[in-house]
Design a binder for these strands. Structure first.
Lengths: 155, 155
DNA sequence: AATAAATAGATGTTTATACATTAAATGTAT
DNA sequence: ATACATTTAATGTATAAACATCTATTTATT
């Protein structure tokens, strides 16, 4: 059964291919988000918390400041301070005072954090592999288009 | 200045073009969402409330049930009942009792609701026109890819 | 050095979201 | 017709998001 955005939001006509794409992008992104949530909720974390954990793991135990985490987040408006709080309570991350700048706070992932990510890896990979219905070239092209879309901001 | 997802989330390498695309899609969608929010907050509505209003306008004064609104929403998990509540308080929509099914509630957009949408139209169009940096054909292809992405659910 | 400005992060507060439950009306089965 | 299940919408509740404000520290200015 072929399900297009038309049937999904029960809209027969779109003003232009651009409107169709815009709505499809928002709709699909919401859909992807809920798919991700389904994965995470069994492990009692949110997508945002997961994003922080991934950034921390990428550091390979090199401490990273809260502000730097924010810079790497997919959602730039998220309150990283509170997200780290949540991870702290669950023993998934640790705060360390920053010697050279006492305003800053260094964050590191814990063993438990790494273990959780490892458990989640196969599911997230599966989530990501949805995209492999596209050819690698199309994926690159697609990605470049998204980059271009955001460019309209810095002219 | 060229800004790619790499610089935006300060990640140099991606596991595959698919991971790059997946993160880019989430990131860009968040970004688009905030751009939309900027438009709406001056008029004291949310993106979700706007979505409901658009659906109501599409009905051209033909009443529509709350459950049907939900089916047409871009975010399927939204609590339409509460969204309609908000619109009601602001006099942007009206509730009407449904004669043939007394469980259901019919909703219609008001004059004020239509006026608000008209004021927002140029801004939303501008938001949508970001996508016209792509060719119409690419937009169609892109949209078809998104449809295909969600297909993996119903096999 | 003293004052002002900027930065980092935490916190307060209001609103929205996620998820479950409830209540009423309708549909279905025996 | 009665009992049970389903649908429709509203509500309860805990958590998270959006946005502003505050405090401590560092940097810049005069």
């Amino acid at each position: 059964m072929i399900m297009s955005i038309e049937t999904d939001i029960k809209q027969k006509k779109f003003r232009s291919p651009y409107q169709r794409l815009a709505l499809n992008l928002v709709y699909t992104s919401n859909w992807l988000g809920y798919k991700q949530l389904e994965i995470f909720k069994d492990y009692d974390i949110t997508s945002q918390q997961y994003n922080v954990l991934r950034i921390l793991r990428g550091q390979k135990s090199v401490p990273i400041k809260v502000s730097e985490i924010t810079e790497r987040m997919l959602d730039k408006n998220s309150n990283t301070s509170r997200l780290v709080d949540k991870l702290l309570v669950k023993n998934l991350a640790e705060r360390k005072s920053c010697p050279n700048d006492r305003r800053a706070v260094d964050v590191v992932i814990t063993k438990e954090g790494l273990d959780l990510l490892e458990k989640l890896d196969p599911f997230v990979e599966e989530w990501e592999n949805r995209f492999s219905i596209i050819s690698p070239d199309d994926a690159e092209r697609f990605s470049a288009l998204l980059d271009k879309l955001r460019e309209s901001d810095n002219q």
